[in-house]
Nucleic acid binder design. Structure first.
Lengths: 207, 207
DNA sequence: TCTTGACAATGTGACGTGTGATTTTATAAT
DNA sequence: ATTATAAAATCACACGTCACATTGTCAAGA
């Protein structure tokens, strides 16, 4: 019974924390770190200011938790996507497909995430940058491994270093997904994710 | 004589303005918009705060001027780079080469510029985003024209829509240049800019 | 030609005002 | 009684203003 109560309370706390983060996420992604006040977050989450501070040391801590937790979710989803299929080309297809879904469903967070990984974010004094980049780099290496294996198995030509290929695919998919999400009227979503992959797969110049 | 005096003063004012912008640039690129105060800028530029406000309506105006002026410089340099050579492949080579130089010489501004073009920047309330994107999009179209002409002249295969190819080259070059500039120890600058272009030029999968 | 002094233009920086993060104190729930 | 929540108080900081100071201009008089 004691146990049950404890865990019940635990769960309750966790739920509250999630609500706070959800409210914060919505606000941050809409207006940016510096244009959102703790008051606003508290109000949106339907808590008082003081309660926020019971859960998070300060604004920075709140933001940091938010971003890293979201980043973990993304990386987990994408890692799973490239691990599941066996064939390398299918891995890449599944990667693009999953990324498209993740982006579409979380476009607002994605922008914050980019701000952090892409440098030029000065939202918090220090630390987050490193923290996020570590995760990003880790993922980039697992993606590189796919290319490496593909080259070893003679499925891919070695047109570049595997890590470079990973960087290339990452940046290409980011660019196109943002393009499509930014203005679906001008740049509608192609049904086929191969539009992106073909840029890598096919050669531009005649040989 | 009157004329000369006038222009002398004009030039003097311009010089001061430049000094202010230079100081602001250094600070903004180091600490971000919100972590730099007008006082700091004034101090660094060795003017009094009031003087700043003689030149710029407010902080936003200062920042906006800074970014758009820099962006114009970049776009001008890059446009020139793709207009000069006659051959399409040489245009692209020259583009990458020039971009590399521009990035290397202005890495700090570049980050700010990305923050603005890549969304996720909430530095100023409104306007800049649109202003910069307009310029960016304009350039993207002139780059697309290179691909279009290349395809028409049978120098390139039509592996994708010309605009998409422009987006692809832009994002690839950004990604690699940042990679190299971020950690030259881990990822040294290849002497040959074709490292980037080959990803576009050569096909990854065997055909 | 040189000096002088009034007047304009430009530069200064202490201060008013507002905002927002964090703390403290009061209240209610368990 | 102890803990969780709410609301008000504190406190620091940064934008932008404005009355004053400084510098520069120009013409009349020595």
């Amino acid at each position: 019974m004691k146990d049950k109560k404890e865990s019940r309370r635990e769960r309750e706390k966790f739920r509250q924390r999630q609500e706070m983060l959800a409210a914060a996420l919505e606000l941050f992604s809409e207006k940016g770190y510096h244009n959102v006040s703790m008051h606003e977050i508290a109000e949106k989450a339907e808590f008082a200011i003081g309660t926020l501070y019971k859960f998070f040391k300060n604004k920075e801590d709140l933001y940091k938790s938010l971003i890293t937790e979201q980043a973990d979710r993304f990386h987990q989803a994408l890692t799973k996507a490239i691990e599941e299929p066996d064939d390398e080309i299918e891995k890449l297809r599944n990667y693009v497909k999953t990324k498209r879904e993740v982006f579409a469903a979380n476009i607002s967070v994605i922008r914050l995430y980019f701000a952090e990984t892409r440098g030029a974010s000065f939202n918090i004094k220090a630390g987050l940058d490193k923290e996020i980049r570590k995760r990003y780099d880790q993922f980039m290496h697992t993606l590189a491994a796919v290319f490496e294996r593909g080259i070893k198995r003679k499925r891919f030509q070695k047109i570049a270093d595997p890590y470079h290929l990973a960087v290339a695919l990452d940046s290409l998919s980011n660019a196109f997904l943002l393009l499509w999400l930014d203005s679906p009227e001008d740049h509608p979503f192609p049904e086929n994710p191969d539009v992106i992959l073909n840029i890598l797969f096919k050669g531009l110049v005649y040989t």
